[in-house]
Design a protein around this nucleic acid. Structure first.
Lengths: 117, 117
DNA sequence: CGATCATATGCCCATATCGGCATGCGTCAA
DNA sequence: TTGACGCATGCCGATATGGGCATATGATCG
């Protein structure tokens, strides 16, 4: 049976993956090119297991690819998955500029409301 | 003392707020204009308390504004907070098209690597 | 004031998530 | 084969999160 779930189906989708600051840092670093886990961990000041776990999440949502290179395992960026996020937020673009006007309208209405009390 | 924390400082930032599908649905709906809680809840097929809780998160990160309108409370969109997300993902835009080539490169390297064994 | 509608909250449960630590596993060198 | 290195996992603890349900709160109306 389907019981109560925390963050239900959210798990392992791109939006969730980039909700974690450290994972965003990893992605940003990978723009410079492939890197082994230890490298990333050190650069970002995190332990190796921690880096590995974050990388796993990123890999599971397809934002990262890995390939073996001898003893090492190189992680590389696959940013295609970020596109949907960019497009989704882009769907609100026209509201960014409107917002201020809207807020002004709110303020006006609030003032009126208070005066009417 | 600061003990181990789950999702540390992530809580209540915009990235986290939009990691939840239902909250994204709410934001999308609000593009059409202000709406009372009950309205949103019904439209999205969720209970009123649930809608209120999601709206609270959205309000806390500033993606939503509310104003009292008599008995009701109208929630309205304030999309400015989405801009950073859009820009962050935009920073990867040039990799979207590269990705395929990169993957091809990976494959090439892999082939070479295998041959060298 | 009392009844009622619209929301926000509190409390509880189940589960997801992060971090640390120790350890397993695969690869390369001697 | 034995070590050493590089990385992935397993397990545990602490906490955040989502949902349900009942209820507190706020506001309007009679």
């Amino acid at each position: 049976m389907i019981a109560a779930m925390a963050r239900a189906a959210t798990t392992s989708d791109v939006f969730n993956a980039i909700a974690e600051p450290q994972r965003r840092d990893i992605l940003a670093l990978l723009r410079a090119g492939e890197r082994p886990v230890t490298d990333l961990a050190q650069e970002l000041g995190m332990t190796q297991p921690r880096a590995s776990k974050h990388l796993r999440v990123l890999r599971e949502v397809g934002l990262v690819r890995d390939r073996k290179a001898g003893k090492q395992r190189l992680y590389g960026l696959d940013a295609r998955g970020l596109r949907p996020v960019h497009e989704w937020t882009g769907g609100f673009e026209r509201f960014w500029n409107e917002s201020f006007d809207r807020l002004d309208a709110y303020v006006q209405e609030l003032k009126q409301t208070r005066q009417e009390d």
